[in-house]
Simulated scan of single mutants.
Amino acid sequence: MPSSSAHLRALVVFADPSLQRSRISRRVVEAVAGLPGVEVRDLYQLYPDFYIDVRRERELLKAAPLVVFVFQLAWYAVPSLLKEWLDSVFKPEWTETPGRLRGKSAFAAVACAGSSLEYRAEGLHGRPLEDYLAPLAQTAKACGMDWLAPHVFYGADAGEPDAAGRHAEELRTRLARHIEGAADGT
């Protein structure tokens, strides 16, 4: 965790209402929390009453060049506290201030049940995963942020022992590369 907002390279907005039972989310948090310049905001730990410290969250958001939304897709939506965080922190009158979020990057790191084949028009879920992430993508774009390709863990329900660990390490690697690239100016 960075010692101050000045050293913040990535803000990880993490939302899992059942972290104590989740083999995937715990691995992800452990993997990314140790990266230098990364601040992990575990929304359900910080705000179990859904009363969000908007001022603090905005400070961190302004300081971070990269925002990563980490969650497990449930009923085709983000967890309720992540939605509350977005509604409270990303108020249009705050985000529309020129330059406030423009040029920052964001992406979703999402775990979902089922295979990638199930997330297409002719698949079980009838739509590609990007359709379910569209509210996040559009929110970021409306704020002038660059929306990056999501980091997706398909088959989160399969129970393959090493899959969660691989997913967490791949996300850690992606974050580390982004942070290194940002530090180098690339």
Rank of each mutant, 00 (worst) to 15 (best):
S5P: 06
S5V: 14
V13I: 15
A15D: 02
A15H: 03
P17R: 04
R21N: 11
R21E: 03
I24S: 03
S25K: 05
V29Y: 05
A31K: 01
A33M: 00
G34Q: 11
G34V: 05
L35G: 08
D42I: 06
D42N: 15
Y44G: 05
Q45W: 03
P48Q: 09
P48K: 12
D49H: 13
D53C: 01
R55C: 10
L60E: 14
L61H: 07
L61M: 15
F69M: 14
V70S: 01
V70I: 12
L73Y: 08
L82M: 15
K83Y: 09
E84M: 07
L86C: 12
D87R: 00
D87C: 00
S88K: 11
V89M: 09
F90W: 15
W94R: 08
T95L: 07
E96C: 01
L101D: 09
L101S: 06
L101Q: 08
A109W: 11
A121Y: 11
G123V: 13
H125M: 14
R127P: 00
R127L: 15
Y132V: 13
L133S: 03
L133D: 03
L136E: 02
A140M: 12
K141I: 13
A142W: 08
A149S: 12
A149K: 12
P150Y: 06
P150G: 06
V152S: 07
V152I: 15
Y154N: 05
A158P: 00
E160N: 07
R166G: 09
A168V: 00
E170A: 11
T173Y: 06
R177H: 14
H178V: 05
G181M: 04
